[in-house]
Design a protein around this nucleic acid. Sequence first.
RNA 1: GGAGAGAUGGCAGAGCGGUCGAAUGCGGCGGUCUUGAAAACCGCAGGCCCGAAAGGGCCCGGGGGUUCGAAUCCCUCUCUCUCCGCCA
Length: 414
Amino acid sequence: MLDIHFIKENPDAVKAGMRAKGETDTTLVDQVLQVDETWRRLKSEGDQLRADANAQAKDVGRLMGQGKKDEAQALIASTGVMKERLKELEAAAAEAEARRTDLLLRIPNVPHPSAPVGATPDENVTVRTWGEPLPQEWRRPHWDIVAEYGWIDFERGVKVTGAGFPFYVGFGAKLQRRLIQFFLDRAGENGYVELQAPYFVNEDSARGTGQIPDKEDQMYEAPRDGFYAIPTAEVPVTNFHRDEILDGKALPIRYAAHTPCWRREAGSYGKDVRGLNRLHQFDKVELVKLVHPDTSYDELESLRRDAEGLLEALGLPYRTLLMCTGDMGFTQTKKYDLEVWAPGQQRWLEVSSCSNFETFQSRRMGIRFRGEDGKPRLVHTLNGSGLALPRVMAALLETYQQPDGRVVLPDFLG
RNA sequence: GGAGAGAUGGCAGAGCGGUCGAAUGCGGCGGUCUUGAAAACCGCAGGCCCGAAAGGGCCCGGGGGUUCGAAUCCCUCUCUCUCCGCCA
């Protein structure tokens, strides 16, 4: 969520940001400013009244102490009247504040100036390509390969749980494990602290990273316990420092975590759900950073480089897209997508998404650091996949298959 | 799952319903002393909100209540700890 003061001082910039993200109705901004005005008025009136009532209550105590019962009695009566009025004011202020928060949560983050303005994915900018996308020729899609060797069992996954919950079998399971290990080791070398995180989070955490309100339909939940199954490690890991004031000298803080991710993928049907392309449960190594505001855009570049380095080490051709404003999502100011080439399908698969949120998440979560002047300031948060496993595995199998049908992987993957 | 105890500032730990945002210790920061450091001594220090400022309001796990007045009393929720049971 944005800072109300920022909105107040830059309403046009906020509206422009909303339009750039494809939000045609910018009246939210006007509404929130209006409600804020109301809240402010009620709040200061209430504070004043409360100050008076507090002063009178103290006088009562003093008078009682001095044995002046009559004077105390008179004050008690008058304070009672004030409290009635105060109750009304407080109720009105609380309502205004709730409405303000509700509106605030529905205003998207403002894109960074370096993000290209655009409405559709066609307007994303390719900022980097690596390797030569292989032609189709004899290459088969990964679902044929894994079926032939029995490395992934989709059918039994359907029986045991449902569509999108595959079993990885034998070498398939081993390969995934080795990739996870490789990703985590590389993250460690790049300065990320490895974290093992809970796979369920509570409502506060889901709200902190912006899954609710709005995207709760994406998550599986355990209502009996008030938990959500994590759709990405971003949620528990970023919330790790929720409601904390960090030592400024500790920044930047970098974490890497491997977790399964669960996504309901409600409403997404079609041909890109074949094989490993889109699952309800998949594994991912996530990179998360909490950084000083001055460095967050440099940190975004290095985050991107860290993710790109993994694909290069695997020898998988990829391209990096700088997302245009219309395609980057509600919470980001700037976002890169890494897409790996899957030659058996002749298409690009998104395997990482690296974003800067500036203070959009940290404001909700109350993650601050003590600045040079000793005052708490909000950190900037970033995250990116490093990387999502199934699609990497798909690209890997399709890329390293041989004309004779065998798959010959780089040595370090065994 | 059953029984009991508890939740106060970075940590530990006080706090008869009235001047308590809160003692004290440790830790932290600044200084004196020292060649430097330690020790000792002196001093400074919570967070949030409104406000240009002055100033004001709120916060003693969350929420609600009693009262002129609540960290202190009541209700409720959550969490933690101890014991028992169960268990990877």
